[in-house]
């Protein structure tokens, strides 16, 4: 089976500034794939390229064998949670989640309401349906955004630091949720994260971006990299985080 996402020789940047050069990797169907790296090395930006918001300077991105996602036509086959949540401020949490259901499914109003409530329960936000995003805390916003990303049952989700800013208990619950969705529904997950426990627990494969060399520093199973990587900076990354975690 061809990989779900195939990235070859992707170069990201603006004008004369190059952020990352010649990135090549692939994500298989059913994977939980983590993008790691220090702050500002371009993890969120890589997601923006993968979901078709930016045009590569060079290189190729193929999702589901269909090429770069074209956001101008129809509905892309994935859900996205942005780092900031990016909930629509003028809509309630429920409306945020129901929006694409209303647009893309023939479901009735009641049915949409039921799905919205179910998704909110899934992320532990029961009863937040009629709240405005401005009334939620940072962690709640993230969870609402995850619920929105999952609204249309996409086969693929992109999550940008889903558990950052969550309390430890919610963070663990969220990891479990991601893992369950992955195992039960076969959901493919591409996530950016700094949380070492969640990397080891849920990520089956990862790439680590490096700011200095503007390239992929390491690729593979995170546990494997931690123990066996030949690159000292990779081991340092895992161990430094581990000390804090």
């Amino acid at each position: 089976m061809p990989p779900f996402i195939r990235v070859s020789n992707l170069t990201m940047g603006w004008g004369d500034v190059i952020l990352q050069r010649n990135l090549t990797f692939q994500v298989d169907r059913g994977d939980v794939f983590a993008i790691l790296g220090g702050s500002g090395c371009g993890k969120s930006t890589l997601l923006r390229y993968l979901i078709g918001l930016e045009t590569p300077l060079s290189g190729e991105i193929v999702i589901d064998g269909l090429g770069r996602p074209n956001l101008e036509v129809g509905r892309p086959p994935f859900g996205v949670m942005f780092q900031s949540g990016a909930l629509f401020g003028s809509l309630t949490v429920g409306e945020n989640i129901g929006l694409s259901l209303e647009q893309w499914t023939p479901l009735s109003h009641d049915a949409i309401g039921a799905i919205v409530r179910a998704k909110l329960r899934l992320v532990g936000l029961d009863g937040a349906e009629n709240k405005l995003p401005s009334e939620l805390s940072g962690g709640m916003k993230k969870r609402a955004a995850i619920a929105r990303a999952l609204a249309l049952e996409p086969p693929l989700v992109f999550l940008d630091e889903p558990s950052a800013g969550l309390d430890p208990v919610s963070a663990v619950e969220l990891d479990e949720l991601i893992l369950t969705l992955n195992q039960v529904l076969g959901l493919t997950v591409v996530l950016v994260t700094h949380e070492l426990p969640s990397i080891f627990k849920i990520a089956r494969r990862c790439i680590m971006l490096d700011k200095q060399t503007k390239s992929i520093l390491a690729e593979g199973d995170p546990c494997d990299l931690r123990d066996n990587s030949a690159e000292p900076r990779v081991r340092e990354f895992f161990n430094r985080l581990a000390k804090r975690a």
């Binding site: 923006r48 979901i51 078709g52 918001l53 956001l71 129809g74 509905r75 892309p76 994935f78 859900g79 996205v80 942005f82 780092q83 900031s84 990016a86 909930l87 629509f88 401020g89 929006l99 694409s100 647009q103 893309w104």
Partner: peptide
């Protein structure tokens, strides 16, 4: 990033 979110929702 709400506009971007809107775009990724089609």
């Amino acid at each position: 990033e709400e506009i971007d979110a809107l775009r990724t929702m089609g």
